[in-house]
Each structure stands twice: as C-alpha cells, then as structure tokens.
Amino acid sequence: MSNVQLFRTGDTPLPDVIILAHKLTREYDMGSELVRALRGVSVQIQQNEYVAVMGPSGSGKSTLMNLIGCLDTPTSGEYWLNGQKVSDLADDELARIRNKEIGFVFQTFNLLPRANALHNVELPLIYAGMSARGRRERAAHALQRVGLGDRMDHKPNELSGGQRQRVAIARALVNEPSILLADEPTGNLDSTTSTEIMGVFAELHRQGQTVVMVTHEQDIAANAARVITLRDGLVATDQARAA
C-alpha cells in the first residue's frame, strides 16, 4: 500500500492508521515449553479497510485478534489503536477501550441466554454508563441496522443461528466502535446463513465501518479487500485483492 509508513520504535502512527501493530510477540509459558503464538507481527490497518486474516489452525490468528481487541497484552512489541499506544495500558483502561473502540463478534455468538436480544445489545452501553432510556433507543437502532427490529424481545434460544449472530453484530456496533473484529463469525453457520452474515458485514463496511475478520474459508475471505495470511506466528502474505 502506498501510504504505509515505515514504522520504527519511538514513532507515532499517521492519523488515518487505526491499527498499528509493531513487532508484536505473544508467548505462553507452559512450564516445560515456551509456546510462541506470535513471533513479531507488524501490521497497519487504515480507516474503512475490510481485512481478512487467514492461515492454518494454530498459526496465531485468534491470538492476534485478542491483542488487537485489547483482550490480551503482548509479550513484547507495540500496539497503537486510533493514535493511542495501548500495549502498556492498565486493566481498567483496556476495559474502557474495549468498551468504546472495539466491537467483537465471536464464532460462538456469546449471547446471555436468559436476556432478550435488546438487553444483550444494551450490555456495552451499561458499562459505558449510559442511562436506561438512551440505551434502549441505541440498542433498538443497532438491531434495526442488522435487520432484527422485529425480534427485540426474543431470547437467544428463540432465534436462529444467523439471527443470533446478527444480535451479536448489533451488540458489537452499538457503541459505534472504531473497528469491528470478528473471529470466524460464520464458523458455526451453514453456507446460506454465512452468505447472509457476510452481506451484513459488507453493508457495514460500505457505511464506513473498519472490519477485521478471521476466516478459514476462501470464499468468505473473498468479501474483504485485503487478506493477511499468518503462518507460525508470523505474517506470511499481506495482499490487496483486485476489486
């Protein structure tokens, strides 16, 4: 990419770079052996990009997503999100960033089973300290955006897999995050439903949302404009796809 900065330790990222990972490593000390899940990953992602992350099982995709999503901190390296260096922030600050900047969509939906769709989508807003009224409006709006305006008071077990994932997407969107992260969002869905969900992501991207998605499947990755491939904890390829 033309405007990618050659980043060195001590630099600050350019303004339109939302994600800047510099030589990120993540090691797990398993006692007998040291598992090196990431061995120095450097990636820059700009505003309104749609990026797919691919690679064989165990290559470190989820580990990277967790670092990008501020659910985890790197063993070494720098991570900048939206111009802020987050790789050495404390627990509570990371929680605030997860709440405000990041929308996470999981393979297994992770909805609260006893709460209805609306309440599930409201959750991030509760931790943002928003009033009950404002929350309901925002959550309802997010559900409408993913086409579930008429399912707000359904519990997860009253919804299809695709609908559940839409609820999860609405929840990820409700705080208007800088990036939408999805770790194999169609991994638990059949192909028709997967296509539907991909349609939702495509629409969100068209509306200006930055999306990073992990997938195993070539035709799912085909939705993205750029594909990063990991192998053994390193970036193997990083290619823009011909539109």
Partner: peptide
C-alpha cells in the same frame, strides 16, 4: 465464567 468473560470483553471493569 463465560458470562463474566463476555462482560469483560464488552468493557466491564473489575469493579463492575
């Protein structure tokens, strides 16, 4: 535990 993990991933702090 899963619910707690989820809430944390959505921005719940320790004190929450």
């Amino acid at each position: 535990t899963r619910e707690i993990g989820l809430r944390k991933s959505l921005g719940a702090r320790r004190r929450d």
